[in-house]
Design a protein around this nucleic acid. Structure first.
Lengths: 121, 121
DNA sequence: GTAAGTAGTATACAAAAGGATAGTGAAAAA
DNA sequence: TTTTTCACTATCCTTTTGTATACTACTTAC
């Protein structure tokens, strides 16, 4: 009786210790568009319309909203050049680049997942 | 002129090659609850109400919905024992366990992210 | 003169995700 | 006898996400 309860408590603690940081990460990264936008910026600094072309399916409204969120989380930097015509460049911050390994891992899993789905169908 | 266009086309292709698999992964994993549920099952097979206790804040409705989706993607297995009372056990499939590295990477980033936020405030 | 590109914003709407609360029916514990 | 446990489902509601379309004001190219 005591044993079982202690064991449960122990795994619950360990469980929480894993869930909380993952939840912190998800708060910043979750949604359909943030990671694709970051991936596009990993290949170089881009302007608004360039990102729009490279992230298939995104609308201007979503891109603008997501860029603002990424900027407020210090993952992306926005720089304005000149005034006529206005040119705006987006780039990854150093912190944004720290997501490289997360993206690589997720990408590898995604590749395997797609293969698996192909075989099944 | 030709050079610039070729270069752009090249990075666009590479970019797409990264975005598509990440998008495949996100389709299965995105949302607030799926990864936390999987983490809870990484610590052992569980019954419905046990998962509900270990994933802080989740409602029965969300848990039931997410478990069904995870099952249909073959990440989670649902087993019914006996009939009175009904006992249902959830477990990770082997495929579900392949997410271990994804979760570890995300967790590590989340830990660093939380530290960073603490320092800032 | 017209179209396309620059970086977005405004508006209206539909769909999906998530939250709060209550209820089911049978059994076992208080 | 009332409560608790089990594994959910039902209903209603709000918030978030996403889509579609049009618009701004200026410049360059055709």
């Amino acid at each position: 009786m005591g044993k079982t309860k202690e064991t449960n408590q122990h795994t619950l603690d360990e469980c929480t210790k894993s869930i909380l940081p993952v939840r912190d990460a998800l708060e910043v990264l979750s949604g359909k568009w943030k990671l694709p936008i970051i991936i596009s910026l990993m290949f170089g600094n881009k302007r608004f319309s360039q990102i729009a072309k490279e992230v298939p399916g995104i609308t201007d409204k979503m891109l603008s909203k997501e860029l603002r969120e990424l900027e407020s989380n210090e993952l992306v930097k926005r720089t304005v050049y000149g005034s006529i015509p206005v040119v705006v460049e987006y780039s990854l911050t150093e912190y944004g680049h720290s997501l490289k390994i997360v993206i690589k891992t997720l990408r590898d899993w995604g590749v395997a997942h797609r293969k698996r789905m192909m075989v099944e169908s």
